[in-house]
């Protein structure tokens, strides 16, 4: 192995392969993937049941009109978009997927630290950066494969329960969201890996990972809805009070600072950007339903870039930050 580049590839491959081998034997990773899959499928089933109830209502209304000898031309049948059923599954990936990322990151780093195998690895002719990069590559590829299983199962389930075949456009959209989900979940993985490789105590790193998860996944995205003044009354305050658009804007100017902060907190969360992009691409949000993909991608470019740059930024810091072995060894 005289060629250094070739040698680096072999070493990286050896480290990634080892991580895969360990994950394959580790029931914990399979259990987590299984749990995420189950949660996503349950959400999909719940959505399908709700849709079936709507269809049943429509059918009974149609039958009633027909039995009364009335016309059904004014009865809006609506259009069925199977991808809309993925709403719950996307929400599960937002929450459970992020947890999967955190746990994979924690186990990847703390496993080496706890077993003291780090010393054995770092006394080989591999650079610290190469070691961290291999860990990152292995974790990201594991997450991608785990999500691939989830999305494949969701697609098959979607076809089965909807009874409608998915078009190439639908499959492209699902594929795109699988990629976006991989970036989103991997961002949490990288964050925890980074913390675990640089904090003195891995348990503190895990705690910090979960606090970040709590803020980014559960609190910040909800702030938008909860603190939006217009959302304080069902259907919207302005709509209920019949306030015209011009008047609305004038009122809103009175609390512009509050609105800027509220929106700022909301958009600071990677989860919100992931959700906005996913809901738009899959046509889950009504204003994107049935729209072609390219204009949606163009409109949601900032959300897509936010997820991508969060991932890239964390990957860059994780790989570039030098490891301090004395901090990582067991006391």
């Amino acid at each position: 192995m005289s060629n250094p580049a070739q040698s680096t590839i072999h070493q990286t491959f050896a480290m990634v392969r080892k991580e895969w081998l360990e994950a394959r034997r580790d029931r914990f990773f399979s259990a987590l993937t299984g749990f995420m899959l189950l949660a996503a499928l349950i959400s999909l089933t719940t959505g399908a049941i709700a849709l079936a109830a709507e269809v049943a209502d429509f059918t009974s209304a149609k039958d009633l009109l027909l039995s009364l000898g009335k016309s059904i031309t004014n009865l809006d049948a609506g259009e069925f978009y199977p991808l809309k059923l993925l709403r719950g599954a996307i929400e599960q990936i937002e929450i459970v997927g992020a947890v999967l990322g955190i746990i994979v990151g924690f186990r990847s780093a703390s496993g080496e630290r706890g077993r003291q195998t780090l010393a054995l690895v770092l006394t080989r002719p591999v650079t610290h950066r190469q070691f961290v990069m291999s860990k990152a590559l292995a974790g990201i590829s594991l997450i991608a494969s785990s999500l691939l299983m989830v999305f494949a199962a969701l697609t098959i389930f979607l076809i089965v329960i909807s009874g409608v075949g998915l078009s190439t456009d639908d499959l492209t959209r699902i594929g795109l969201i699988w990629g976006l989900s991989t970036l989103y979940v991997s961002a949490f993985f990288l964050l925890t890996l980074l913390l675990c490789l640089h904090l003195k105590n891995p348990a503190t790193a895990l705690l910090a990972g979960f606090i970040t998860w709590l803020i980014l996944v559960l609190i910040a995205p909800q702030i938008g809805d909860t603190l939006d003044p217009d959302n304080q009354v069902a259907g919207g305050v302005f709509k209920q009070l019949h306030v015209q658009k011009a008047e609305q804007d004038k009122i809103k100017q009175g609390y512009a600072t509050f609105e800027t902060i509220r929106n700022g907190v909301e958009v600071a969360s990677i989860t919100k950007h992931f959700e906005r992009a996913s809901f738009a691409v899959l046509g889950i949000k009504d204003n994107y339903t049935g729209k072609p993909l390219l204009p949606i991608l163009s409109e949601k470019l900032s959300d897509l870039l936010w997820v991508l740059f969060s991932f890239l930024g964390l990957a860059f810091i994780t790989i570039i930050k030098p490891l301090q072995f004395s901090k990582l060894v067991k006391e």
């Binding site: 072999h10 050896a14 081998l21 034997r25 003291q116 195998t117 006394t123 591999v126």
Partner: peptide, 28 residues
């Protein structure tokens, strides 16, 4: 160099051969 730390521990889920193959791969 080769190094054997105090209380050496390896990757428990892997066999001896798999552990050694990993370290051999790293050593080139």
């Amino acid at each position: 160099i080769g190094y054997v730390p105090e209380n050496v521990r390896l990757y428990d889920n892997l066999t001896t051969k798999e552990n050694l193959a990993f370290f051999a791969g790293l050593s080139g």
